[in-house]
């Protein structure tokens, strides 16, 4: 935990000063966090790979002369060469180009499920932890049930029933992630709510909502960030898997998972078609996992290797 939560906890100073000092300690806490994060080699490697992929996705039109969607029937299934250094696909499109553009879907789409699962999960966890009673029982029982269905299966069922397209796939991935946030926020809320400073603010007449957002939420942010950073890799993988199965993005828009699926049909004739996009998924997910591990270690050394 950083200085931020400490100053939050029991600072008796008047409001302005509290805000001031919180701002200052936030900044130093942030620096401290970054220093701890990049102390080790793997998070540094991860960051470099992620930044390279991000640049590739954002500046794709500047980095390649080809179009990711328009077919070129004179260059069908060409092996890697100087003109197409990752080869071309069954419609003659340059694979390197499609991987760059595909990154736009595979990387940026990851944030939608992240937002869905964290916002719903955190809300449900906070509600269950403060309201208690039957509401608590129902919410947490449903979360337990969600966790007992293998996540890929649940995603497939939700995405399949909503109909195969990218948005539905992202919603499915987001829903499946809800339970993890709800559980940890619920547990943290229960423990924080009983602490003396929270009881004291309650005694001073603070409303439940005020206690929730000003006292409890700041205390559960660290575990939320840890879960979020550890789950991005899984989200990218999930989107790729759903697209691979034909439940995610639909052609001709490129995404890494669907490119591997197309390549699967030409494994004997043109192995590069599935190898290259698969390697992109692998590298990206590994890099994000390195970073996620680093974030966890930096925020909470005690959790290292345990989550």
């Amino acid at each position: 935990m950083t200085a931020q939560t400490m100053s939050n906890a029991g600072d008796p100073a008047p409001p302005e000063t509290v805000r001031e000092s919180r701002k200052r300690s936030n900044r130093t806490g942030y620096r401290y966090f970054l220093r701890r994060l990049f102390r080790r080699i793997l998070p540094r490697i991860g960051a470099v790979i992620v930044v390279l992929f991000l640049i590739g996705a954002v500046f794709a039109p500047l980095l390649t002369p080809y179009d990711p969607i328009v077919p070129d029937y004179e260059a069908v299934r060409q092996p890697p060469s100087s003109a197409h250094w990752m080869g071309t696909d069954d419609l003659g499109r340059d694979l390197y180009t499609r991987i760059l553009y595909g990154g736009r879907i595979s990387i940026f789409a990851a944030f939608i499920p992240l937002l869905i699962s964290s916002s719903i999960g955190v809300t449900l966890g906070l509600i269950a932890g403060t309201v208690r009673g039957p509401v608590e029982t129902i919410i947490m029982r449903v979360m337990d049930a969600l966790l007992s269905i293998p996540s890929i299966l649940l995603m497939i069922v939700i995405a399949g029933l909503l109909g195969p397209n990218l948005i539905n796939a992202l919603i499915a991935i987001g829903i499946v992630g809800v339970a993890r946030y709800a559980r940890i926020v619920y547990a943290e809320t229960l423990s924080v709510a009983e602490r003396e400073y929270v009881l004291a603010t309650r005694a001073l007449g603070k409303s439940t909502a005020g206690i929730l957002f000003q006292e409890i939420l700041p205390n559960v942010t660290a575990p939320i960030i840890v879960i979020a950073s550890l789950s991005i890799g899984g989200i990218i993988l999930a989107e790729a898997t759903l697209s691979f199965l034909g439940l995610g993005i639909q052609p001709p828009t490129p995404s890494w998972g669907s490119m591997v699926a197309t390549g699967n049909r030409y494994l004997q004739l043109a192995p590069w078609m599935s190898l290259a996009p698969g390697a992109a998924i692998f590298l990206m997910v590994m890099a994000v996992n390195f970073l996620g591990d680093g974030v966890r270690d930096a925020l909470d050394p005690y959790l290292s290797g345990k989550m």
């Binding site: 890799g233 993988l237 790729a240 898997t241 691979f244 998972g257 591997v260 699926a261 390549g263 699967n264 494994l267 599935s274 190898l275 698969g278 390697a279 998924i281 692998f282 997910v285 590994m286 996992n289």
Partner: peptide, 9 residues
């Protein structure tokens, strides 16, 4: 990190 469908291929 490796997508299992890719490992399979």
């Amino acid at each position: 990190s490796a997508p299992n469908f890719w490992v399979a291929l």
